[in-house]
Amino acid sequence: MWISSSFIYIIVDDDASGKMYVGFGTDEEAVISVLGHRNANQMKKIRETYHQLYNESLIDRLHSELSGDFRLLVGLVSSYRYDKEVVDPEAAMLEAARLNEAINKKQLDHDDVFWILSTRNVFQLRATFAYYKQLYGNPLEQDIKNCGKGDLESLLNVIVCCIDCPEKHFAKVVKDSIWGLGTDEDSLTRAIVTRAEIDLSKVEVEYAAMYKSSLEDDTSGDTSGDYRRFLMTLLGK
């Protein structure tokens, strides 16, 4: 367990490693990283384990910590995504059109947007995102960015990235953690620990493609001592 501040998050990755990681999140992006691509079974375990550990409802805690547009995060943890790897192409096309309509009207807080992102399974959403690009020429993230630079736009882009290409999201988290003076150890630890037994090799490949450098070398160069050895062990070095 590692501690930062704010509110608790629990990561359950039983489908990949059978292990549970418990920690504390410091911001909305951390919560999205945890919740954005979980299936219904994992969400249920997260809620149950949180209640067992802290004797309070995770939904109630999120409601008390978050406000406004960030209520979508409550939807992510309280929703019941379909677990099956089922894709309905017709629904994907229709929902791509709904997302495009919301973007054109600059109504990113529309209930349709929240409902699509918080209830559809990962495979269905990836199909919707693919149809969106095919039909409207731009990736969904780009059109969301064109709507503005507010909290909601940032929130939605992180959610879309986590669902569509989690390895790209975590590669960016690592880079942002070590960029500039000092190291954001909480974010760096979260990114590497939570992906270590899932898709860390994919994160490394994506990192190299995005930044033309090695995740291992950059992480090693920005850390030291036992902390560096810990991360290098997780990286298999």
Rank of each mutant, 00 (worst) to 15 (best):
F7I: 10
Y9I: 12
Y9M: 13
I10V: 14
I11P: 04
D13Q: 10
D13W: 00
G18T: 07
M20L: 08
G25Q: 00
E29N: 01
E29S: 00
A30R: 07
V34E: 07
L35W: 07
A40V: 01
A40F: 08
Q42H: 13
I46M: 02
I46P: 01
Q52Y: 13
Y54I: 08
N55D: 11
H63V: 10
D69A: 06
L73E: 03
V74S: 14
Y80W: 00
R81I: 08
V86H: 07
E90Q: 09
A91Y: 01
M93K: 14
N100Y: 11
N104E: 03
K106R: 14
H110Q: 01
H110Y: 01
I116F: 10
I116Y: 03
T119E: 12
Q124D: 06
A127D: 15
A127N: 11
Q134C: 07
P139V: 03
I144C: 05
I144Q: 06
K145L: 12
C147I: 01
G150D: 06
D151N: 10
E153H: 05
L155R: 14
N157D: 12
V158A: 03
I159C: 03
C162M: 00
P166H: 03
H169S: 12
D186N: 05
D186E: 00
D199F: 10
K202Y: 10
V205M: 11
Y207H: 06
Y211L: 04
E216T: 14
D217G: 04
T223E: 01
G225K: 15
D226G: 02
K237R: 15
